[in-house]
């Protein structure tokens, strides 16, 4: 019987292809389940963080686009948001995978797109951009009129007004909802290896390993609670991190007026 340290050395980085090649096949210990599922979390964190950062920039552009007066800018932004918010992420993954697969036949450069690390990341990026774009758009519309008028009075126009007044206020108003979106997105990353994207050499995410154990042992009562444990831990981490940013965004407000970050429940997408 291997000690737990040995198991961690073997399987701690298994999900990115470092360590023992073969997965355990029988007599699973609690330590093995904890290590492998935790190892899979690296994929969830990778997808979550990269999609969030890239999606944030596109979301800002989409929100500005959707509130534009120019039809040629507004309509594409509206359609983009509707397309990604109105259809299931699961189907988006499937469609994107098969789209990349058929593109690969004609253009070999699309080879990387059919693997999860890039293909699924692109889908998640576009998806979260649409959801956050809608949140930011809502925030843009509820910016107090006085703030913008004050900016006008100070002679701020165009980019300077956006950069110094509108954008920070938008972020401040959108932040609680955006925290939710981050939690959503992080949970949505579990769908990657359950849709079309193949887990190359059994290098999958946390849910991939959890269901591997559940399938092998016919006992769902151990791996899924472990997965839940990791996810709750990381959700708390997101809430903490976003709470810090929220405090910084609101630092100029009088203490009594500061609203604590109230989180709405999260939903599947």
């Amino acid at each position: 019987m291997k000690s737990c340290i040995q198991t961690i050395q073997d399987y701690g980085l298994r999900s990115i292809g470092i360590g023992e090649r073969r997965l355990p096949t029988s007599d699973f210990t609690l330590c093995e389940q904890f290590t492998l599922i935790g190892s899979g979390m690296m994929w969830n964190i990778y997808f979550g963080i990269l999609a969030l950062i890239t999606g944030f920039m596109l979301a800002t552009a989409l929100a500005v686009g959707k509130s534009s007066k120019n039809r040629l800018i507004r309509k594409p932004a509206e359609w983009f948001i509707f397309l990604f918010r109105g259809s299931p992420l699961f189907i988006q993954f499937f469609f994107a995978y098969f789209l990349f697969l058929s593109l690969k036949k004609s253009y070999p450069m699309f080879d990387a797109f059919t693997s999860a690390w890039l293909g699924a990341l692109i889908v998640l990026f576009l998806n979260t951009a649409a959801y956050s774009g809608e949140i930011f758009y809502g925030a843009l519309r509820s910016i107090p009129k006085g703030d913008v008028e004050a900016a006008d009075a100070y002679g701020l126009t165009g980019w300077a007004r956006f950069r110094r007044v509108i954008w920070p206020t938008m972020l401040r108003l959108a932040w609680p909802a955006y925290t939710n979106e981050a939690i959503f997105l992080f949970q949505a990353t579990t769908l990657v290896f359950f849709s079309a994207f193949p887990a190359w050499r059994q290098e999958g995410d946390a849910l991939y390993y959890a269901s591997y154990f559940a399938d092998k042992t016919f006992n769902p009562f151990i791996p899924y609670p472990i997965l839940a444990f990791y996810f709750i831990l990381f959700t708390l981490f997101i809430v903490w991190g976003f709470g810090r940013i929220n405090a910084r965004l609101n630092r100029h407000l009088p203490q009594a007026q500061k609203k604590k970050l109230r989180l709405r429940m999260n939903l599947a997408r």
Binding site: A188, T190, F194, I232, T235, M265
Partner: peptide, 16 residues
Amino acid sequence: VRGVPDIAFFLFFVIA
């Protein structure tokens, strides 16, 4: 159901 991906619940409840 907060904090845990719903898909994990789906996979869990069907067997459970």
